[in-house]
């Protein structure tokens, strides 16, 4: 049996005395959509940061198709095929929408110093391909990021469009796997529904594997093949949405949290 696309194996990450991740293991198979849920502070984004190489794990391993990617720089991991978005949108705010997406193509192109200076036919062709790919990725969101908007600086976009642009930029890295960090945060119900469809389309139309951190249970329910629930950096449940939603520990994690909040 070939290994799963992504395996997170016994990962522990500590910040000072705090364990953000504690012996966390799960795997994601080809073409799956897996959601990670958990209360605030459960270490969900830290998982993403460890997978994409922003933090080295203190213990454990992360494997892509059976090969360890621990210790690789983030740009190498992106090149290996993992793309991501961020919890608080991080665009290149002063670059145009199109340019933002074009940066995504960076690791799929080669033009070097001399080629760029001489602007050889090969480099011109490559540049045309980059542009075309970027436009296609923006086109994934229909008319939202098309037309005149492509030449606007990214900071001028609405909040929802910034989230979409971030996803388009990630798509432009030509990934095999997409990590989405709370893609619907701050969106209204209509936009949230639209986004749910986009996540499903990423799998169905683009053959991507998707790992998504999400708070909105309707989205989680609507898209997930499997759900991983975390609390305090540990996995507390894994399974279909229904299984996880009815798990005692999960309910307690959420309700317990609520009790604390209510004081």
């Amino acid at each position: 049996m070939s290994p799963a696309l992504l395996e997170v194996d016994g990962v522990t990450k500590r910040f000072g005395g705090l364990s953000a991740l504690n012996d966390l293991s799960f795997s994601v198979g080809d073409g799956e959509i897996v959601s990670i849920i958990g209360p605030n502070g459960a270490g969900k984004s830290t998982v993403f940061n460890v997978i994409t190489g922003l933090y080295p794990p203190d213990e454990g391993d992360v494997r892509l198709r059976g090969q360890s990617i621990v210790g690789l720089s983030p740009n190498r991991i992106t090149k290996a095929g993992i793309a991501r978005t961020f919890q608080n949108v991080h665009l290149f705010p002063n670059m145009s929408v199109l340019e933002n997406a074009m940066v995504g193509q960076h690791s799929r192109s080669k033009a070097g110093v001399f080629g760029s200076i001489a602007r050889t036919p090969r480099v011109r062709r490559e540049e045309a391909v980059i542009r075309q790919r970027a436009e296609e990725c923006l086109g994934f969101f229909g008319k939202r990021l098309a037309g005149y908007r492509q030449d606007q600086p990214a900071f001028a976009l609405s909040y929802a469009n910034r989230r979409r642009l971030e996803m388009a930029r990630a798509l432009a890295t030509d990934p095999v796997m997409m990590l989405l960090d709370e893609p619907t945060a701050g969106m209204n119900p209509k936009e949230t529904l639209e986004l749910r469809d986009h996540i499903v389309r990423m799998r169905d139309e683009l053959s991507l594997t998707v790992l998504v951190i999400e708070h909105d249970m309707r989205v989680v329910k609507g898209v997930s093949d499997r759900v991983v629930a975390c609390d305090y950096g540990r996995k507390i449940a894994e399974g279909t949405y229904e299984e996880v939603a009815n798990d005692e520990q999960v309910i307690e994690a959420y309700l317990g949290k609520r009790h604390e909040e209510l004081g």
């Binding site: 090969q67 190498r76 090149k79 095999v176 683009l206």
Partner: peptide, 19 residues
């Protein structure tokens, strides 16, 4: 989006130099 193609090969092979 046709050009993205299905199931691109995963490129984790690193030359010894880069590692």
């Amino acid at each position: 989006m046709a050009s993205s193609g299905p199931a691109r090969a995963v490129d984790t092979q690193l030359s010894g130099f880069a590692t």
